[in-house]
Design a protein around this nucleic acid. Structure first.
Lengths: 118, 118
DNA sequence: AGCACTGCGTTCATCGAGTGAACGGATGGT
DNA sequence: ACCATCCGTTCACTCGATGAACGCAGTGCT
């Protein structure tokens, strides 16, 4: 399951640096190698990135994960989508925080009331 | 594993209404019955709540999950702890949002640049 | 009394996302 | 030739979460 979160994050990292290995991506993203491998395959399947496995100047094997034009386009879309989701989260979080603040205040009053009774 | 999140949420719900059944708690919390059962057991084990299984006025069985004094105290502490964690999350989220906004702007410029070249 | 039904807590087989050790292949160094 | 290293790939395993199924207790109807 390729979530918007990793769809966005992987595309961003690869847009900035297509030479990242799967292990580097995993470290960067804080997820396992297996999951990175899965996400990359998914992104390749839907045509967002293309793997160029060429030999570099020193005839050394080099994997490069390049964003396709579709991938570049999708990155922009998914970024906006991801931002919007974060904004929603933000709103929810603010409400939660407000409720928690209220509750802490109420608890303080309760405790004070109990202290007065003792 | 009893996380602070559910430690807080269950204590809050039960403080407000000790008569909630496990199924009602599950619905309220948006989690499964099994998980609620596990959380309650954990809270009972560490002495935060006590289950009163008495017969009510009509001799009908009734489960009541009451907060112990320790539970009331813990609820206050865990609420503050939970609030602090939410505040941290909030800060992280704001930074993420700012970064995403920046990125959307950059992408717009890039796209415009490409459009100009076409 | 008998029976069906409801609601309770409890259990546990099942699921699936996530993990990372292990593998084969390619390359570089000695 | 040999070993070390880094690559992507695989897959057995873990573990939190799930909810169907169970036994039990009380209710209501016949």
């Amino acid at each position: 399951m390729l979530t918007d979160e990793y769809r966005y994050k992987v595309l961003k990292l690869l847009a900035d640096n297509p030479c990242l290995s799967q292990r580097e991506l995993a470290r960067e993203l804080g997820i396992s190698l297996g999951k990175v491998n899965y996400c990359l395959k998914a992104l390749i399947d839907i045509g967002m990135i293309k793997v160029n496995n060429f030999k570099n100047s020193h005839n050394k094997q080099a994997y490069v994960y390049l964003l396709t034009p579709k991938g570049i386009e999708d990155k922009a879309k998914v970024t906006v989508r991801f931002l919007n989701r974060k904004l929603e989260e933000h709103q929810v979080l603010q409400q939660e925080i407000e409720a928690l603040r209220q509750e802490v205040i109420e608890e303080e009053h309760t405790t004070q009331g109990e202290k007065l009774l003792q």
